[in-house]
Nucleic acid binder design. Structure first.
Length: 291
DNA sequence: TGAGTACTAATTCAACCCCT
DNA sequence: AGGGGTTGAATTAGTACTCA
């Protein structure tokens, strides 16, 4: 599944509803032309995505797309939100998926769900699971449904903004979950040491020693848990501090020294590599307009 | 988890630019 | 001319990969 950058997404809502399904209501087996989020407010449903099976209870949300056939079945009276959307489409005008849905046979339920990957700036890569328990999503879905039904002027753009808000909330919660897991992880002592002394020019071997691992093994663990190489993480953290200090007017030379860069040349080099701007350019762009 | 090897990216250095 | 900052090339350290 392709990786999308969160800040480059242009989601389009194709359909949104809140409805109540009676026991036995069956959607499928089918292939949809876009992606779908189903959030169960109350009741009980089950979902097959290819060969995989999920039970969905109140407060749970599922995601699937048109890559793999699925089947959704309400087991009890089920109150739910359904949002059809596309991750990125130039036009924000909804394109009702109904006409392009392909119905299939139960024997076509093969394959496994493909999980979309989203790159969150400065944080890393995140995979959207098929099922999870979100919080705070319902009010946004309510607004999406209302906006979709009223079709007031500019509703496509409003839907896009609300969908972006929903996706940001979903990924923000995934980020939170990951940091909770990380706080109990095997590389936690190294992360803590770097946060305590961000200005220190940490060597990978030093960080590995803190955690009691061989440097190569440590680098591998680090990449698995954080999604970045230790060196990249260290530089990224120092550049974050540098941005703040530059906007406060600190001189580039003093800053590079304080943050443990071996030279102003290297600092400038790294800063431009990560931000696309030289430190001086960044300071100029970040400064509020003079009045 | 460690060692060896090939490759990549980080770091350094020197030359350069821009502004005062 | 000198200070502050940027850029490109060469050198060195770190990483990925594979195997034990």
């Amino acid at each position: 599944m392709s990786i999308r950058a969160l800040d480059e997404l242009m989601p389009t809502v194709n359909f949104a509803s809140r409805a109540t399904a009676l026991p036995g209501t069956d959607w499928g087996v089918r292939l949809i032309p876009d992606c779908q989020l189903v959030y169960v407010v109350s009741g009980h449903a089950e979902l097959n995505v290819g060969e995989c099976f999920y039970e969905i209870r109140a407060g749970e949300c599922v995601y699937y797309d048109g890559e793999i056939p699925h089947r959704l079945l309400a087991l009890g009276t089920t109150d739910y939100y359904s949002i059809h959307f596309q991750w990125t489409r130039h036009s924000s005008r909804p394109l009702h998926p109904g006409h392009s849905i392909r119905y299939m046979e139960p024997r076509d339920l093969i394959g496994k769900p493909l999980h979309p990957k989203v790159e969150i700036p400065d944080i890393g890569e995140f995979t959207l699971p098929t099922k999870w328990s979100p919080s705070g999503l319902e009010p946004i879905f309510t607004k999406i449904v209302k906006e979709y039904e009223l079709e007031q002027p500019g509703y496509g753009v409003s839907l896009r903004a609300l969908m972006m808000q929903a996706l940001s909330l979903i990924f923000r919660q995934l980020v939170g979950q990951r940091s909770e897991q990380r706080s109990r992880s095997r590389i936690d002592p190294a992360i803590q040491a770097m946060q305590e002394q961000p200005g220190k020019n940490w060597a990978v071997s030093e960080l590995a020693a803190i955690c009691g691992y061989h440097p190569i093994h440590f680098a591998k663990l680090f990449k698995e848990e954080i999604g970045l190489l230790p060196k990249h993480y260290i530089i990224g953290e120092r550049i974050k501090l540098a941005k703040r200090a530059l906007l406060q007017g600190e001189k580039v030379e003093a800053l590079s020294e304080r943050l443990g860069f071996t030279s102003i040349h290297y600092f400038s080099h790294q800063f431009k590599h990560l931000t696309g701007l030289t430190p001086t350019e960044f300071r100029m762009h970040g400064r509020p307009p003079e009045s």
